[in-house]
Design a protein around this nucleic acid. Structure first.
Lengths: 168, 168
DNA sequence: GCATGATGGTAGGACGTCCAAATATTTGAT
DNA sequence: ATCAAATATTTGGACGTCCTACCATCATGC
């Protein structure tokens, strides 16, 4: 991270050049896009988690808390959480296990479907959600490090990509 | 992935709406950008790994192979690999362990620096790199699922982001 | 020279993600 | 009414990532 171990060249631009040099020019942009996406996600996640670490949660768990926070009753079935966050059911189980151990949510039985498990946001979880969001907003989301019009363009492009992939 | 479990609404657009409704409008775009980045990376990685799985490697290991493939001597020190791929040294150790176990690379001692370890691309690794790249190019990189101008714009934005984060 | 600090690599552990498989319950079709 | 298929969740395992800590070796300054 420190400026000291900055690379002299953009490694992805370098890979793009190699792709073209090996006769794969028509795939070079796509390769650069996918690789950039990987690295950008890593950077964004690191920034977010640096702040969430103060509160003892990860981004995955924070997302669960916010989903519950926005829900009318502060309660959602496991399956709904997985669908909205677009993650595997086992990832939800994992996150809820840890949130429950931290006293931020609790599991409850579903009133009508005995297969389902409800996750309920507890007061401590609600407080953490608000506080963490204020910090994330101030330190990351309001100042993402790229110009506002680039943020808008980025979201638009990625929304197309997600729609195309069948997310919604 | 199947169209059947498509959500009726874009969950990130929904979160954005909630952000605005809770008085966090100035951070809503940044939140949407970060969240989109997470999901887009997941989608892109899944596509790539679906193809690489045929060859028994992951994207992380494929990246190591390609770096060696592009190197003049087919050999690079561990530290150089970590720097170019922008990952932690332990991630390189992990990847090289598995590539070595699969007979795709081998570790060799550095001629002048006895602390360093060289990673050498073996013939099997070189063949896998070429074959996997041809498939990736044909099935993913040449057809990323978004228009060419969007790919260019995406790479430009993420390059700024990476530069701003101190990558190069 | 020689000590101090920097650099290169690995071990062990935490975490999130996915997959395959298992169990429980509900739905639907005959 | 019954039985097969679909749905909801969990368990166990693989993998990549990071972090902290540790050891070996190199480089620098005095």
């Amino acid at each position: 991270m420190p400026a000291s171990d900055r690379l002299p060249m953009d490694p992805i631009a370098e890979a793009r050049r190699q792709w073209a040099a090996h006769g794969w020019a028509d795939a070079a942009d796509g390769m650069a896009a996918v690789t950039s996406l990987m690295r950008a996600q890593q950077i964004a996640l690191a920034r977010v988690e640096a702040i969430l670490r103060r509160h003892g949660v990860t981004f995955a768990r924070y997302e669960v808390l916010m989903l519950l926070y926005f829900s009318r009753a502060g309660t959602l079935p496991m399956a709904t959480i997985g669908a909205r966050l677009q993650v595997h059911p086992t990832s939800v189980t994992n996150a809820v296990d840890r949130l429950e151990a931290a006293g931020l949510v609790r599991r409850a039985s579903h009133p009508t479907d005995r297969r389902a498990t409800l996750v309920e946001l507890l007061d401590a979880g609600r407080e953490l959600a608000v506080k963490a969001t204020q910090e994330l907003n101030a330190e990351v989301f309001s100042a993402p490090g790229i110009p506002p019009e680039a943020v808008t363009a980025l979201v638009a492009i990625l929304t197309d990509l997600r729609r195309d992939a069948g997310d919604f």
